[in-house]
Structure formats: structure tokens, C-alpha cells
């Protein structure tokens, strides 16, 4: 039996289905996220396993990894970000087009992890806003998939106007991103 995705709220009738544009766009976006892998260490290896045939991230609509920040929606930061790397990460984030989401995979990207040292950035949320944190050192591919599904949930339910809202502008200003 083929499983069909659940319909959003709306009115169905003879030959038509009406719902809000926001919901339709949300579903479309959530199932065609183009991720940009920013893999610096061990979590990147786990991500490669996630992309492989066993776990197969492609079934979430992530068939194509984008290595250009301008054509991607989801920044996946995997691994330790040193202070020297932080400006690079911020530049990659600013080069991405809106709407964009960020997932911090692993303890190092989320909080610095075991590397509580002078040269390691203690969590990437010091330089860019993060949507979903995935714990683990390194996390299992199942955990990464769980994080991805959380991101999909966020994308699906995001109002179209969110990126123009004063709250979002305030968030970007807090990180000194114009």
C-alpha cells in the first residue's frame, strides 16, 4: 500500500482543495531542503554514514548536497569550530540566501564539547543563530536524522512572514548580521 503524505488543514470539495499558501509553501520547502555540509571533524564522518545507503538522507528530499552557500537552505555545522574558523563560518552563513536554517551537529558545534580550551569556539551560537542542536560525541546517524526531522517540522510550520518580522531582524542584529 502506498503511503500518502498527510493533508494540511483546508477545505476539500469536488475537484478542489483549498488551504493557506503558507502551509503549501511550508510543505514544499520542508521536502526539498538543500543542505550545505560544513564538516570539520568526526561528526562529518557520521554525516557521511548518514548520507550513505544504510541511512539514506535522500529520502527526506536532500538528494543534492549543495557546496555553494548561495544555493542551499540548511547549514549543517558538524565538528569543532576553532576561533580561527569562526569568521569563515559567519561568512558562509551570511552568503546563504533567505530562508535559511542552521543545525549544529555534535557536542563540539553545540557547546564546545570536550574541547574547553582557549582556541575552540564554545558553541557556534556565539556567532550565528542555531535552530536545532543534536547532542552526541559524535552522534549516531539516527540522531542526525532525528535532528533533520526536527528541522523539517520547523520548516513546515514556519509562517511566510517570519523572515520579515521585527523579531527576526532583532535576532540577526544580535549576531551583527545585517
Amino acid at each position: 500500500m502506498t503511503k500518502i503524505a498527510e493533508m494540511p488543514e483546508g477545505f476539500a470539495g469536488e475537484g478542489f482543495f483549498a488551504t493557506s499558501l503558507s502551509k503549501a509553501v511550508g510543505i514544499a520547502r520542508a521536502n526539498s531542503i538543500w543542505p550545505l555540509p560544513f564538516a570539520t571533524s568526526c561528526c562529518g564522518i557520521e554525516f557521511m554514514a548518514t548520507m550513505g545507503t544504510d541511512y539514506d538522507l535522500s529520502r527526506f528530499g536532500m538528494e543534492r548536497l549543495s557546496f555553494s552557500p548561495r544555493q542551499s537552505d540548511l547549514l549543517m555545522v558538524m565538528g569543532t569550530i576553532a576561533k580561527k574558523m569562526a569568521p569563515v563560518l559567519k561568512q558562509v552563513y551570511t552568503q546563504m540566501a533567505e530562508p535559511k536554517w542552521v543545525i549544529a551537529v555534535g557536542a563540539c558545534a553545540s557547546s564546545g564539547g570536550i574541547f574547553d580550551t582557549y582556541s575552540v569556539l564554545q558553541g557556534i551560537d556565539k556567532v550565528i543563530p542555531v535552530d536545532v542542536y543534536v547532542p552526541g560525541c559524535p552522534p549516531r546517524p539516527e540522531q542526525i536524522i532525528d535532528g533533520i526531522m526536527k528541522i523539517q517540522e520547523l520548516v513546515k510550520n514556519e509562517p511566510l512572514r517570519r523572515r520579515f518580522s521585527p523579531e527576526y531582524q532583532h535576532l540577526l542584529e544580535k549576531y551583527q548580521i545585517a
Binding site: S41, I45, T80, V88, F115, T117, Y118, V120
Partner: peptide, 28 residues
């Protein structure tokens, strides 16, 4: 130096049995 994690300084400060997880993550 883009993933310099101050491993040497960490190894100075930790007991020897706590270094093993750090060497694990040198070359993953």
C-alpha cells in the same frame, strides 16, 4: 590551524586516562 583544538594544552592539564578520548578524536 582552522581546527586547532589546543590538544597539547589539554594533555598538560588532564590525567593520562582522560587523554584517550581526545586522541580518539584526532584522526577520526
Amino acid at each position: 590551524g582552522y581546527i586547532h583544538r589546543a590538544f597539547e594544552k589539554l594533555a598538560e592539564h588532564r590525567p593520562y586516562n582522560q587523554i584517550t578520548p581526545i586522541t580518539d578524536r584526532l584522526n577520526y
